[in-house]
Design a protein around this nucleic acid. Structure first.
Length: 271
DNA sequence: AGGGCAACCCGGACGC
DNA sequence: TGCGTCCGGGTTGCCC
């Protein structure tokens, strides 16, 4: 099961803007009330008939900006995914929420802890207020990063997946970033040398865009004929690669657990 | 502040 | 095929 992180949500964002921008939500079906934050009748009343003005990404969230200035805030959490198709191509899975656009529908699937919440613009900003910096923002320069982590402490992997530290990195890309930077996931942030800190920054700014451009590692496509989404699946160099040979040094990739998170690394070329 | 941990949730994988 | 059981994890909140 692959948990959507920044590259996956960015991939969704780009695709959904292409598919949905300026389209009207003609119908809403809520099969699981817990997926939404207000009574279904109110949710449907507020959403049906509006158009999608834009889809934005913040950390691992998507924001669907509606023409009535309301915002749908999506978090897929573990195992959630989306599919956009006509009824005849609807996935044979339980659909928690469905947004219809005429003949086509956006299906929200696997929302267990995930949700699609209805907010005002002010409310959504409150919801997202505690998120750390977006690691790919143009304004997040190396200089900014170095000064930002100056007084931060803790295990590298745990900092990387901490949404208050940085926005959008999860269990997979934290390992991929550590690998790329040749740093052990359990190393302490405060122990990193200047060069290692720079390498960390470079790897964050390399791994996440690469994965995004390739299409992320979601296991499900977004629409019929979508061959891009998920193309990063077999590009991971350590995540879920236990026992495989390290692409740099040939050693076996090791799986371990850090704070009950499965963690993969090369014991030889990561220090 | 960091670190540990329980609770949340249920589709799907697995066993029989 | 069908039924029962259990796992996975991002996030929050609480504790030390």
């Amino acid at each position: 099961m692959h948990m959507p992180e920044l590259p996956e949500m960015e991939n969704y964002k780009r695709n959904l803007n292409q598919l949905l921008q300026n389209k009207m939500i003609t119908d809403v079906i809520i099969n699981r009330e817990k997926s939404v934050n207000v009574a279904p009748i109110l949710f449907i009343g507020a959403v049906r008939g509006t158009t999608i003005q834009a889809v934005e990404r913040r950390a691992k969230h998507l924001l669907f900006r509606l023409s009535n200035n309301k915002v749908l805030l999506l978090h897929l959490m573990l195992g959630g995914w989306m599919y956009y198709s006509e009824e005849k191509d609807k996935p044979k899975r339980t659909v928690q929420v469905q947004l219809s656009f005429g003949e086509k529908h956006l299906y929200f699937i696997g929302l267990r802890l995930g949700y699609l919440h209805l907010y005002t613009e002010q409310e959504v900003e409150q919801e997202l207020a505690d998120l750390g910096p977006e690691p790919l923002d143009a304004s997040f320069t190396e200089e900014q990063f170095l000064s930002y982590i100056e007084k931060k402490r803790g295990m590298l992997k745990l900092k990387l997946v901490d949404q208050h530290f940085l926005s959008g990195i999860g269990n997979c890309y934290s390992d991929e970033i550590c690998y790329d930077a040749r740093l052990l996931p359990e190393s302490k942030l405060e122990d990193l040398s200047g060069d290692e800190r720079s390498a960390l920054y470079t790897s964050i700014r390399t791994v996440l865009p690469e994965a995004t451009e390739i299409g992320g590692y979601m296991e499900h496509p977004l629409f019929v004929g979508d061959t891009k989404t998920g193309a990063y699946n077999d590009k991971c160099r350590v995540y879920d690669c236990e026992g495989q040979s390290c692409q740099r040094c040939g050693s076996k990739i090791v799986k371990t657990e850090i704070s009950s998170k499965k963690t993969f690394f090369c014991p030889v070329c990561q220090h």
